[in-house]
Amino acid sequence: MKIQLTKDFLGGVLFLLIGLSTIVIGNTYKLGTASNMGPGYFPIMLGVIVGLIGVTMIVTALRNPENSETVASWEIRPLIFVTAAIVLFSALIETAGLIAAVAGLVVVGRFGAREGSIPELVVIVAVLIAVSVGIFVYGLDIPLRLRPW
């Protein structure tokens, strides 16, 4: 039998994985009894439920693959660049400061969609730096580092 990687099938696999890892990790905590639950009891319970939901979805998807479509396109580009932009912000905010972090966030995020001109990007970056410094640093008085020095 050829396995069709439908949305329901993959969703089932994802749920099964989350359920199983929850059970595995939950097993390292004390289980306790139903009347006196340890820290592991409830997580394992949830893990079992999520795992069973995953199995149900996998089985139904294998039986009736026509009920669910395959993912048409994953659109990897926005996923990678937006995520990279946010991670870059998280790396820069405490080391290089707010101005560099905002600039990095907007410029890298821009690669997620190939739209707009360079001058437009420069204007957006400048405006957003001014607005965020104005609101957060001067308006709300939040002690944010502005520059690397």
Partner: peptide, 14 residues
């Protein structure tokens, strides 16, 4: 979307 990105990131951080 750059506006949403910037406000979310600073917001979460603060």
């Amino acid at each position: 979307y750059p506006v949403i990105l910037v406000f979310s990131c600073i917001g979460i951080y603060t």
